[in-house]
Design a protein around this nucleic acid. Sequence first.
DNA 1: CGGCCGATCCACT
DNA 2: GTGGATCGGCCGA
Length: 211
Amino acid sequence: MERLTITGQKLGSGFYTDPDVVGIARALLGKILWCNMDGVLSGGIITETEAYAGAEDRASHAWGNRRSGRTEVMYREGGCAYIYLCYGIHSLFNVVTGREGLPHAVLIRGVEIAGGHENVQKRLGRKIFQTKDTTGPGRVTRALGLHHSMTGTSLLGEEIWLEDHGIVIPEHQILTGPRIGVDYAGDDAALPYRFRVDNPELFENQIIKKK
DNA sequence: CGGCCGATCCACT
DNA sequence: GTGGATCGGCCGA
């Protein structure tokens, strides 16, 4: 486990506009995702991500530069949230990246709760929660209070944002593999665009104070 | 405008 | 390991 810095640094526009969405997906491991909707704060250390590489990626909602009301936010300049409803039940949270017109996004698939534990407890309706309760993209949004109605929210504002607290995941603790549930994507289904921390439970019960 | 189906999860067995 | 829940987006008629 790496040392944690006392205070974090909010990720700025430059982090999100990088055209290398796969690099960003990897770099997001260990970053803190905060949600402060309606004054209720909760946050988690990101432990699992997947990159969706825009127009060239058959697994992406923006494959072939398809546009729709839902996917429009993917084409914005990096630094906003793309949250959509999956299977009629689950809100899935993505970080939009890249320059305007480049529909890149990173799906957040797992976190370890690091702030606002009491708020998460209320949402999940249980007193104790651990890795399995916040691993899986639907569980991430349920725990943090992220909802698909919040899609398009800027990550540079005060509602949803990310911070760097100096947590560095060593290379050998990062597992890489194909993405989940993208069998329809032909050859692109095999791309190694999924990243996860080998032992996320090491981050259980962390307490990180927001900047 | 009807119908199909998905970047999932959970409660079963 | 399997099936049901549940609904908005999208495509084709």
